[in-house]
Design a protein around this nucleic acid. Structure first.
Lengths: 318, 318
DNA sequence: CTGAAAGCGCTTACAG
DNA sequence: CTGAAAGCGCTTACAG
């Protein structure tokens, strides 16, 4: 591999000049910069990241942290995020390092080692939990981090999120306007995830604005009878806004089993189902994970001072 | 951060001795080694990976390469693999670097840069395609790599895979023995993925051994009528072995819609569906992605000479 | 059993 | 506008 020393020798320049020229240092004449870059090209010069990182006392890597307990559902989303993150990192000549483990302790050790041994100074967390030990750690360290999902009320840090209230309202309106649904119900998990609360709020707003009676289903994981009962108690329902595609699909199937001849339109979130499983009555709000990943990187590299508590909202689409 | 120089000074030893002691070099007395390690502990010494990698001319990182076009289905599997890979890497003090992109060119550039700039010498590919440019590149470079999935016939390199013929047979037998299914049909995609062919072979073997008539469904992505027709043409069917969970679930629902009162048992593969979507008649063969990831790392670090074309088969379970 | 020294490939304060 | 030199924190061949 050619080094800057090779370029320097070949051109009768000093190593310092070559280094500066390659880094576009103003102090080197434009002419020299051009010549050096051309020679670098010719020799197939590739910078040695390890050497550079050693001098810089900082790695050209971003640590991407996975949550410990993730639902199967979310994995699809994570890969989309990775795509966006890496696309953006590549153009910055940065590298994507992953921290993932089966326990909080493992992940914590992983991240600590990234900071102290690998000298990584920037992190993206694919989640945003309350009282998360990793987040607590990062806040105390001289590093920058961005979470996917907003922090709980009262907390402040950099994050990327969707506007879930709007996403809830949009999903609801979509059913009413495009499919002439009269009585959409809202379905959520019993867990009360933050994004669920927001989407529900959007649903409620939309329902009250159009003077309709809102109905909330809390759909239990295992109990099918409970779900059947809810469906039977609401003969008026002709549409579903479900906080995730899985819940939506489940309700869709139960509904069709109970009422084979009735039509129903469903909106879920996340585009997490393959076409194999859905049909034309099933819709999903795309939260654009790839774009969220890209925006996370942007935030991470913005001027640290003005970006203390900034965030980015990614538009969704149906 | 404490460095080996700090330890050396504090103990009146040379930097060389400290370095050797920490690396358990035989030439240093056990006594000294112990003392040095204790002091390292006390000072909270953490090795600087960038420095070490620079001297070693090799990064303590494994490049994990994602396929360009992945189906939603697979994402679930990838996260499981990542878990296994990173667990194993952590114990080796190695780091996980990801290469992922939207085009072959992007991924190829990504990997090239890992080799030449980051000096990564070991790779794991989360796929195993024929004529894949990344694989072609890696074969020519002085690096080691392992694929998830076996290479096409005639090709040879390190890989980790399941025994899919056995997995096909086991799934079939599982239905017959545990659920007294008499006439399981086999469902596959029209794509003819290698693992599908193998699972089908296992199914056929099991059927012929028990003197039953095999039936193969090629399930199209979009055409529901085609699927309905197949179901109607086979009134004897009381079980399904599907090459993936999605196909299995789809057939299950169509079957239940056409025959609300008949029972049917389904086996899919990959454990890729959340409980929300399945019930007690739906089963899935677990291919143990986490274990596959761990084994991939093991292979990657085995003695290079004896492991030229070795592979590991991970046991599945239902 | 231990040490002094060179070297890995960069960046940058200092000097001119 | 360019260069000589120090330094980042390690490992290891050479010497004793």
């Amino acid at each position: 591999m050619a080094t800057i020393r090779d370029i320097a020798k070949k051109m009768g320049l000093s190593v310092s000049t070559v280094s500066r020229a390659l880094n576009d240092n103003q102090r080197i004449s434009i002419h020299t910069r051009k010549r050096v870059k051309k020679m670098a090209q010719e020799l197939g010069y590739q910078p040695n990241y390890n050497a550079r990182n050693l001098t810089n006392q900082e790695a050209n890597a971003v640590g991407v942290v996975f949550p410990v307990n993730n639902r199967v559902v979310d994995n699809i989303f994570y890969v989309g995020l990775l795509r966006g993150i890496n696309e953006e990192l590549t153009s910055k000549n940065y590298v994507l390092s992953v921290a993932i483990g089966n326990s909080t302790e493992q992940v914590l050790e992983n991240v600590k080692s990234m900071i102290t041994r690998a000298q990584i100074k920037r992190f993206i967390l694919l989640y945003s939990h309350i009282n998360d030990p990793v987040i607590e750690l990062l806040r105390k360290q001289p590093v920058t981090f961005v979470t996917i999902g907003k922090p709980a009320a009262g907390q402040k840090w950099l994050y990327v999120d969707n506007n879930n209230v709007k996403a809830g309202a949009d999903g609801t309106r979509f059913l009413m306007e495009r499919y002439h649904v009269s009585n959409p119900i809202f379905a959520e998990s019993p867990n009360g995830w933050p994004y669920e609360l927001d989407r529900r709020e959007g649903y409620l707003r939309e329902m009250s604005q159009t003077n309709r009676k809102p109905v909330i289903f809390a759909v239990p994981d295992e109990d099918e009878h409970q779900l059947d009962r809810l469906i039977k108690e609401n003969p008026q329902m002709d549409g579903v806004v479900a906080t995730d595609d899985y819940t939506g699909l489940k309700i869709y199937h139960r509904f069709k089993t109970l009422h084979p001849d009735k039509e129903i339109e469903v909106v879920g979130y996340n585009n997490s189902l393959p076409n194999e499983l859905t049909d034309q009555h099933f819709h999903s709000v795309d939260l654009h994970p790839k774009e969220m990943g890209q925006d996370a990187v942007q935030l991470l590299f913005e001027n640290q001072i003005e970006a203390r508590v900034k965030h980015t909202i990614v538009e969704h689409s149906i």
